[in-house]
Design a protein around this nucleic acid. Sequence first.
DNA 1: TTCGGAATTAACCAGATGGTTAAACCGTGT
DNA 2: ACACGGTTTAACCATCTGGTTAATTCCGAA
Lengths: 201, 201
Amino acid sequence: MDPAQTKEKILEAADVLFGELGFDATTTRDIAERSGVNKALIHYHFGAKDDLLEALLEGYYAKLGEALRGALGRSDTLAAQIEDLLDAYADFLAEHRSFTRIVQREVASGRHVARIVERTLPLFRLGVDWLDGSVRRMPKDFDAVQLLTTVYGLVVTWFTYGEVLKELTGKDPFSPAALAARKRHVRKVVGLLLAEVEGRT
Amino acid sequence: MDPAQTKEKILEAADVLFGELGFDATTTRDIAERSGVNKALIHYHFGAKDDLLEALLEGYYAKLGEALRGALGRSDTLAAQIEDLLDAYADFLAEHRSFTRIVQREVASGRHVARIVERTLPLFRLGVDWLDGSVRRMPKDFDAVQLLTTVYGLVVTWFTYGEVLKELTGKDPFSPAALAARKRHVRKVVGLLLAEVEGRT
DNA sequence: TTCGGAATTAACCAGATGGTTAAACCGTGT
DNA sequence: ACACGGTTTAACCATCTGGTTAATTCCGAA
């Protein structure tokens, strides 16, 4: 079989299983079984289990970067661009549910933080620089770090707590309607923040 | 030795280790070693490893409930009460760093969600009922579930991403000054939300 | 057809893991 | 002094873990 296919099948299985069970609770045997591939091939193609996770994250962040860059070119006005960005991010998280779970889980455990920071850092710096540059006089208590953390949490929390929300509300928080509602809410809240920050760009 | 002391020492070690390494990556031997207690005693006093986690969460939620109830009685006006509540929550998370990490981690993995939901549900229902009851006409896209998710994320994200923020900013996000700054920011944002919702209580 | 390197396989390994058990220990009430 | 219950201990166990290895299969180039 084409080794590229083999690698893809392994990554696919790892994606689902890491997302479902978590990195630790997933065994290389699980991955082998689910992907229909010999266990030794995982090590042959990717190296250690840690490296497999890294390869997976690599793919995720590449796709995420693509999605965000794509969103940026869509509109002209700043407000519209921000909305596009938020929507694209939410759509990405909705489409790659495992990603949120994996990142959240590993960040919470402090274990693969370095690798995640490594990929996030450029995006974060971009955001800070952009905010610092485009906002004339930041209101007290609304510096770039606070704002970015807030907006990030705004988008991500819905996905992190998806399972909890499902139990709590009895409805599927990932249905198209529910996702659309969350996106509207996020847009409104970010609008409020923007209005507050408003040294006018 | 007093068995109550033994149990406490085990819980203390589990608290630190679950928070630091995560539930899966922590072995019962780790806990035994750190608490200076024989490994078999963990099973004698708590049963399986899962049950130990449950006992730990039990204690956390009891303390959290206490902290939140305590905060509610402190002020008279609604706005002040909300601020007290947010502050108390943030203080609790700051004091029990492991708690955030454990909950976030287990929620993200979907593994012990049932137990966590069980404890969160009453608080959530309380919040929803209170919001629905006290707000005359909820603006579009600001229903109770959206608002609670947003405010929850607002508080929690800072702690969940503490390690990442440390790397990103180079400063300790849990220093008293940093925590105070985050609390001020959260208060301001929640103030904005409140002003928006404002059918006046 | 033959050769050689990449891909695949089954069998294997050392170490770790959660959990058990039977014996020892300890204070207390009789 | 003794017996008893709860507590503690060291040794043990079956199982699982990530990872390795030597042998085999596969396939395109010479």
